[in-house]
Write a protein that binds this DNA or RNA. Sequence first.
DNA 1: GCCGTTTTCGGCCCGACTGTTTTCAGTCG
Length: 571
Amino acid sequence: MKNQFVADVLYQIADLLDLKGEIFFKTRAYRTAAQAIEVLDEDIEVVAKEGRLREIPGVGEALAKKIKELIDTGKLEYFEKLKKEIPMGLLNMLKIPGLGPKKVAAVYQHLGVKTIEELRQACLEGKLRTLDGFGETTENNILRGIQLLEKTRGRVLLNVAYEDGMKYIDYLKQCNEIQRLSIAGSLRRMKETIGDIDILASSDNPDKVMDYFVEYSDVQRILLKGSTKTSVVLKDDLQVDLRVVKEESFGSALQYFTGSKEHNVKMRGIAIKQGFKLNEYGLFDKENNEYIVGKDEKEIYNKLGLMYIEPELRENRGEIEMAGKHKLPKLIMYNDVKGDFHVHSNWSDGSESIQTIAEYTQSKGYEYIGIADHSQSLKVARGLSEEKVVKKIKEVEKVNKKLFDFKVLCGTECDIKPDGSLDYSDKVLKLFDFVYAGVHSTFKMTREEMTKRVTKAMENEHVDFLAHPTCRLIGRREPFDLDMEQVIDVAKETNTFLEINAFPDRLDLNDLHARLGKEKGVKFVLGTDAHSLTHLDFMQYGVATARRGWLEKKDVLNTYSLKEIERFLLR
DNA sequence: GCCGTTTTCGGCCCGACTGTTTTCAGTCG
């Protein structure tokens, strides 16, 4: 599958053309095509071979030719030429929030700035303010943007690491020298960003396992190779460490390498207090160094008088104490989810029809699906006018007539205006099966103003869910300043479900806020914010965040049956 | 660069916001 590769090249061409000052519509054409290829559920190589490239929406004569060249030769002359014209470092500069192609081009042309580091220097020296359209504030904004970018540098979003990790695991499963195999580290804990992927295997023949490990086709280079630890870098620059231990140590090694560090420190302290010693090789008697347990994680926790602690909880946030009292929550399971509420159809900015989404999600095993398209003022996302809402509801009714044992719920992701009012009249809001309210613009408000804005929307009787409450975009936009405690209180009073948005760069609410909400008795709804069929699989990252927030099945609306859901929404 | 058709080229999404200006350009969603 070269789909992602082709899409990435097209995205880069679009950026490069932006920097050259090409017209907006041309660069948009590249991006539209790139996105279509990214979510294509077919292998682009097959499509190319069968001469069907132009059937992909957004791919015309010129792009089809370029894509074909790229697939056939692995290269694209046009792209190579552009790269010679424009330093690639400028593409990194585009990632800085608040910096677009025009400004990047200006600092390159007038100051010769080619990298983020040079840009930082130029800002610090006050050189940018000498350029037309730049001032002191711009310099400060850029410096802040660079800082934000660096916070997540070297880390990738959970879904990227997860997909890489699972593919690698599938490959390693074919190695018959391996007895047991697991993901470890922060990926096993399902943290929102991942620095590198840790994999653990048990084997009596570690050298052969390591040989097999480095033969993987996605390996770019080998950093180090030994018989207990080997590290490689994948073609997408993500580092993967494999550790191989003996079968009898698999559980203790898994415990050790899953972390977190803080969790492990505490665990070892407890072991010592009870006359043991805990390390990656097992649980030992402190006095005579005798091996006690270590084959399975569970027996280690139990031997120390603790309940088994799920990986998502291992952050030393009180889970060890609760495990000691046998009071850990019974976490929501990944297969507890019976439906998704936050799905965009092609009525607004999604790529699929309601019918297609319904069929796909039913085949996935869901019982219902909530279509929540954008509201009218969100023109960029082709938000629905009030007239179109009525038409869409009819369409949903039509689709539902064709379905058996499955229901499409017609909702909206209604924009919350700066004054806290909603983008549809109450008369229209009443027509929906459910209403998400969400902020989509004017992010810079004071804490008081934003809290007032959001809570006012929640107080509207038609609003059921609060979408992506803090509007953060991991690595790109800070969460806005919101009095979360007050939002939670109002959610409780108004019976508003708080969303855990499962889209990997949002995961909003985050784990900590979810836990805070649960403690106060608030309920939650999971939504993928899917704009294509592949996005629907992001649900697992929402569940992971819920688990990291200590949520149980009963706390999450999506685990209820259709009948129960309808009761909730009709209240 | 794509698309649709007005069949050979014009339209393609646009308003809010920010920081820079003094009427606007750039960025964002």
